[in-house]
Design a protein around this nucleic acid. Structure first.
Length: 269
DNA sequence: TCGCAGGTGGTCG
DNA sequence: CGACCACCTGCG
């Protein structure tokens, strides 16, 4: 049974920008699964209304999920002031928002993302949910599944996971779920690095998307291209890029990364 | 066939 | 340290 939630006075919002800027994998055609909730999001840019058709969650829950209490206009102003070169990217992805996502789901999702491409990442994650998640019911024409808990994945058989075409990431997933179960949610970058299958790039993604540490600046192949194109860094000078991001964007580096990533990735097609 | 895709871990020097 | 390199899988 779906209910409708309307949130008023929503600015700096565009579902395409939010769902395609690389932070999440379970939204398609503005329909997504968040926890045990299925949701279809529609934004009216004339009236600045966000309409959600969902099977659950309070208005406050969704308000937080979509990060609606953060002033993105102010963030864009600050980024533009610190670096005029980023302005085209700010305009192109004007509706980007960094979601407040579940930490465990983010950990597993970005372990799956390594050395992988987005369509296949999405396919892999849906396969994990269909196999190990809970049935939430049929919504918008198909059965929806929750993302499995750490307890369930910790007990998963590596060979079963292999059938989902996760490749060498199977072992990482089970080990990571066990570590999470044993020690609880990771709190910082170093703790994330101690997880199997998590290196600097994935750790920064989890910091930014799972822990909402908006100063994190994940450097993937796209950002490497950008930093080479726009700022003249050598392809593999990750250290230089990290320092540059920190110096230029400071505590807003994560936002900058999202605008730049979306701009370059979309522009390429 | 081969390189690449939102990289990481292991092994050398 | 830093530079290589193998690695599941699917696509162009």
């Amino acid at each position: 049974m779906l209910k409708e939630i309307i949130i008023e006075n929503v600015y700096d919002f565009d579902t395409a920008h939010i769902f395609d800027c690389g932070q999440c994998f379970r939204w398609n055609n503005d329909i997504g699964v968040v926890g045990s909730y299925v949701c279809k999001a529609t934004y009216d840019e004339e009236k600045h209304l966000l309409k959600l058709e969902t099977n659950g969650g309070t208005k406050e829950f969704w308000q937080n999920y979509f990060d609606l209490d953060t002033d993105y206009s102010a963030i864009k102003k600050m980024l533009a002031a610190s670096d005029p070169d980023i302005i085209p990217a700010l305009e192109y992805g004007q509706g980007i928002r960094i979601l407040n996502q579940d930490i465990f789901e983010t950990i597993i999702s970005f372990i799956v993302s390594q050395n992988n491409n987005i369509p296949r990442i999405k396919k892999c994650i849906e396969a994990i949910c269909a196999r190990y998640g809970e049935q939430l019911g049929e919504y918008f024409g198909e059965m929806r599944y929750s993302f499995p808990s750490a307890g369930v994945l910790a007990e998963a058989d590596v060979c079963d996971l292999a059938e989902l075409k996760l490749g060498y990431r199977c072992e990482y997933i089970v080990s990571a779920a066990r570590q999470y179960l044993k020690f609880g949610a990771p709190a910082d970058y170093d703790e994330l690095l101690s997880y199997p299958g998590i290196g600097p790039k994935v750790a920064n993604c989890i910091m930014l998307f799972g822990l909402h540490s908006v100063e994190a600046f994940p450097i993937d192949t796209w950002v490497k291209h950008i930093m080479n194109d726009m700022y003249g860094f050598e392809k593999n000078d990750v250290k230089g890029m990290t320092g540059f991001a920190r110096d230029r964007f400071g505590n807003y580096a994560g936002y900058a990364q999202q605008y730049l990533f979306y701009f370059y990735r979309e522009k390429k097609d």
